[in-house]
């Protein structure tokens, strides 16, 4: 399957969807005007990737600094897709600012909801 890369803008993250190297990464801010439309092709790619097309090892990195409530739902949906999908070795990392309690609370909420993903909290 083809890789996908979206460059960061003022209100949307840098997105790397690399099937060959098993890298999935979101970095930056996420509050595009049409959030669900923005993530639609990303969700399609993820559904295909986790339907028997994954690399031997998959690393998923969330490095989001700010995001709107719609993105909160999108991230939940992405974790759900991964959880229900097929994969071999998986590493999920949630990056957050150690000075910011919100980032860690978001990590706690997602990791409580998706314990099977063993999400790692990583400070930056």
């Amino acid at each position: 399957m083809k890789n996908m890369k979206l460059e960061q803008t003022d209100n949307s993250p840098n997105v790397i969807l690399d099937s060959l190297n098993g890298l999935i990464e979101f970095e930056g801010k996420s509050y595009p005007e049409n959030t669900f439309e923005f993530y639609e092709p990303i969700n399609s790619w993820l559904n295909e990737y986790f339907s028997g097309n994954c690399a031997n090892k998959t690393v998923v990195n969330f490095k989001l600094t700010y995001f709107n409530s719609s993105t909160t739902q999108i991230i939940f949906d992405i974790f759900d897709t991964i959880c229900e999908g097929e994969y071999e070795e998986l590493e999920v990392n949630w990056f957050y600012d150690s000075d910011n309690k919100n980032g860690y609370e978001d990590f706690e909420d997602y990791s409580d909801e998706f314990p099977d993903l063993n999400i790692n909290a990583v400070t930056y």
């Binding site: 409530s69 719609s70 909160t72 739902q73 939940f76 759900d80 409580d112």
Partner: peptide
Amino acid sequence: ARKKMRASKDNHEKGAGL
């Protein structure tokens, strides 16, 4: 919030109320 997100996912809604 987590309950809402789960319901939105199951009902194909768009995070109403989050």
